[in-house]
Write a protein that binds this DNA or RNA. Structure first.
Length: 582
DNA sequence: GCCGTTTTCGGCCCGACTGTTTTCAGTCG
C-alpha cells in the first residue's frame, strides 16, 4: 500500500473531470468524476480500509469503474488511465478554461484549427485576427477573449469575505432605496458565507424590471457592463469583481432566493428530489408538472424558503450549510443543528495590543469592548521569538500582567463587570517547544499556541511539532492551525486529522481565527473536530479595536462548519468560562 | 460513468444571454 490521502485522490478525480471536459467527452461522464471526487471529500471512513474490505463500492457516486481506479491509486500510488489522459491533452489548454467565454468546445476548436497550445499563443492569434475567422467565432468573440486575457493578467478573480461584505452592503442598500424594488437580497456564495467570493449575486423582485436594471448598471461602483438582458445584468465593479443582478416577480422571490443562493451542487440535489416527487423546481417555482416551467396555476404555493424545503420532505437548511456536503441527510431526519449566532458571543480569547504589534492600548481596548457589550477580552500578545511583531519577553509579559490587573481593578471600581484576561500567543518553536517555560504559562488566564516561522517543514515534522504543543497542559487553544493566508499563502503541510485527534485527546480547543485573511481552521474540517468533542474558539486575532467586527463575519463561517453555540467556547459568559480555563 | 418500487438501458438540473446564425450552439452560473 502506498500513502495517498483521500484528498489527493479526490483532487486527482477532479483533474480527470477537467481533462475529459477538454477532450469533449460526454458531459455526464465528466460529471460522474466530479461527483466521485465530492463523494470522497465527504467520506467518513478510512479510504485504505474501504478499498481492502470492499465497502468503497457501496458509496453513492462510486461505481465499478471509479472503484477500480481508486483501488489502483491506493494500492500503487498512481493511475495509468490518468497518466495517459494527461499525456494526451496539451497542458496549456487547461488554463484557458479560466477565460470568460471560452469553454471546452471553443478551446478545442482553436487548438485543432490553429494549433494553439497555451494562452500566449491564443493572445497572439487574436491580435493577428486569426480567431475571428474560425467558424462559430467572430470579431466580438475575439475581442472578448483578448479582454479576458488582459483582465486576468491584472487582477485575481476572487475576493475575501470582508471585501465582499463592503460591496454587498453598499449595493444592497442602494437597491433597497429604489422605489420600484419590492424585495431584494444578496444571494450566492456571499449568503452562504464562503471564505472566498468569486462574484456577488443580487436578487430583486419588481414590477418594473427595466428601471431596476438600468439603475443597477449605472450605480456608482460599476465600471463596465458585461451583459444585459431583460431579467439579468452582469457588471464589473470598479475594483474588478463581477456583480450579477437577477429580476423576478415578487411571488417568485422565495424560489429565486433559494436558487440563486446555491450552491450549484445543492441545487442539483434539490431538483433531483423534486423530480423524484413528480415535481419540477427552478428559480420561478416548484411546479406540479414534469415539464411546465412557469405556469402560476401549477405552482406549489410557498411563502418562504422553508416552505420549499418542507414540500420536498426536508426541514429548513440554513444558507451556510447548502453545499451538498451532508445537509440533506440531516434535513431528512429533521436533525439540522441550531447554528451559533454571532450575538451569542460574549468575548474573545486571542487579541493583540500596542504591547506587541497591535494598535490600541490596554485601556482603549477594554473601553471599546465594554461599549460593544462584551464580558471579557483576552490579551494575548506575541511572545519573544516573534521579534518581527515586537513580541514580549518574560519581563515585559510580567509587567503587562500587572498592568492588566491594575486596569481590571480600576474597571471594577467603576462598577464594570467586564474583564481583560491575561495571556499570550506563544510561539510554537521548531520541534514543538514553546517560547515560554511552563511556570510562566501556568500563571496566565489564556494561552494560545501558534506557529509564526518555519512554515516549510515536512508534513510529519510539522504535524509532530504542533501535536507536541497541544499536548502541553498549559495550552488552551491552538491558534490559526494551518497558517494559511487566503489568496496569499497556502497552508503549511500538516496532517490536520492527527492534529484534531491530539486536541481531542488533550482537551485543547481549536481556534477559528476570525481574521478574513485566515478563517482558519477551515470550515470543512470542523465536523470531524466537533464529532470528537473539540471545542471551537472564534477569535478575531484583533490588532486594532475595529477588528472586533471580524467576530460577526467568522460566525457565518462557524455556521457553515455546522457549529452550535455550545460548541463555541466564547459563547459562555465569564462565570462559565473561568472554571473551564483553570 | 452512475443509477434504478416506473428502468440493467436510457436517462442524467435548468434557464438566461451572446454571438453567430437564420434556428441554435456554446457558455455561464
Amino acid at each position: 500500500m502506498s500513502r495517498i490521502s483521500k484528498e489527493e485522490v479526490s483532487e486527482l478525480l477532479e483533474d480527470i473531470a477537467v481533462l475529459l471536459e477538454l477532450k469533449g467527452e460526454n458531459p455526464f461522464k465528466t460529471r460522474a468524476y466530479t461527483n466521485g471526487a465530492r463523494a470522497l471529500q465527504s467520506l467518513d471512513g478510512d479510504l485504505e480500509e474501504m478499498v481492502s474490505d470492499g465497502t468503497l463500492k457501496d458509496v453513492k457516486g462510486i461505481g465499478d469503474a471509479l472503484c477500480k481506479k481508486i483501488t489502483e491509486l491506493v494500492e500503487t500510488g498512481s493511475l495509468k488511465f490518468y497518466e495517459d489522459l494527461k499525456a494526451s491533452v496539451e497542458p496549456g489548454l487547461v488554463a484557458m478554461l479560466d477565460i470568460p467565454g471560452l469553454g471546452p468546445k471553443k478551446i478545442l476548436s482553436v487548438h485543432e484549427k490553429l494549433g494553439i497550445t497555451d494562452i500566449d499563443g491564443l493572445e497572439k492569434a487574436c491580435r493577428e485576427g486569426k480567431v475571428e475567422k474560425l467558424p462559430g467565432f467572430g470579431k466580438k468573440s475575439q475581442d472578448k477573449i483578448l479582454q479576458g486575457i488582459e483582465f486576468r493578467r491584472q487582477h485575481g478573480t476572487h475576493i475575501r469575505l470582508d471585501e465582499a461584505t463592503e460591496w454587498a452592503e453598499e449595493i444592497h442598500h442602494a437597491l433597497r432605496d429604489h422605489p420600484e424594488v419590492i424585495r431584494c437580497a444578496v444571494a450566492g456564495s456571499f449568503r452562504r458565507s464562503k471564505e472566498i467570493i468569486g462574484d456577488l449575486d443580487f436578487l430583486v423582485s419588481t414590477n418594473d424590471p427595466s428601471a431596476v436594471i438600468h439603475y443597477f448598471s449605472s450605480l456608482d461602483g460599476v465600471s463596465e457592463i458585461l451583459l444585459q438582458g431583460e431579467t439579468k445584468v452582469s457588471v464589473r465593479l470598479r475594483q474588478g469583481t463581477q456583480a450579477d443582478l437577477r429580476i423576478i416577480r415578487d411571488e417568485e422571490f422565495p424560489f429565486a432566493l433559494h436558487y440563486f443562493t446555491g450552491s450549484k451542487e445543492h441545487n442539483i440535489a434539490m431538483r433531483q428530489r423534486a423530480i423524484q416527487k413528480g415535481l419540477r423546481l427552478n428559480e420561478y417555482g416548484l411546479f406540479r408538472s414534469k415539464t411546465e416551467t412557469r405556469d402560476p396555476d401549477l405552482r406549489v404555493p410557498c411563502r418562504t424558503e422553508e416552505d420549499i424545503f418542507n414540500e420536498l420532505g426536508l426541514s429548513y437548511i440554513p444558507p451556510e450549510m447548502r453545499e451538498d456536503m451532508g445537509e440533506f441527510k440531516l434535513a431528512e431526519k429533521d436533525a439540522i443543528p441550531r447554528l451559533v449566532e454571532w450575538t451569542r458571543l460574549k468575548g474573545s480569547l486571542h487579541n493583540h495590543t500596542n504591547w506587541s504589534d497591535g494598535k490600541n492600548t490596554l485601556e482603549q481596548t477594554a473601553r471599546y469592548m465594554i461599549d460593544l457589550g462584551l464580558e471579557y477580552w483576552a490579551i494575548t500578545d506575541h511572545s519573544k521569538s516573534s521579534f518581527q511583531a515586537n513580541g514580549l519577553d518574560e519581563k515585559r509579559l510580567e509587567e503587562q500582567v500587572e498592568a492588566i490587573r491594575a486596569l481590571n481593578g480600576k474597571l471594577e471600581g467603576e462598577g464594570e463587570s467586564f474583564r481583560l484576561l491575561t495571556g499570550t500567543e506563544v510561539d510554537i518553536l521548531s520541534g514543538g517547544k514553546l517560547d515560554f517555560d511552563d511556570d510562566i504559562l501556568a500563571g496566565l488566564d489564556i494561552v494560545v499556541a501558534s506557529i509564526h516561522n518555519g512554515f516549510s517543514q515536512k508534513r510529519d515534522v510539522m504535524t509532530a511539532r504542533i501535536i507536541k504543543a497541544v499536548e502541553n497542559p498549559n495550552v488552551h487553544i491552538l491558534g490559526h492551525p494551518t497558517g494559511r493566508l487566503l489568496l496569499q499563502r497556502d497552508p503549511y503541510e500538516l496532517d490536520i486529522n492527527k492534529v484534531i485527534d491530539a486536541c481531542a485527546a488533550n482537551g485543547t480547543w481549536i481556534e477559528l481565527n476570525a481574521s478574513p485573511y485566515r478563517l482558519d481552521l477551515d470550515w470543512r474540517h470542523w465536523s470531524r473536530a466537533a464529532e470528537k468533542g473539540v471545542l471551537c474558539a472564534i477569535n478575531p486575532d484583533a490588532h486594532r479595536n475595529e477588528h472586533a467586527g471580524f467576530l460577526k463575519l467568522a460566525t457565518g463561517v462557524a455556521r457553515k462548519a455546522g457549529l452550535t453555540a455550545d460548541q463555541v467556547v466564547n459563547t459562555r459568559p465569564l462565570n462559565a468560562l473561568l472554571p473551564l480555563i483553570k
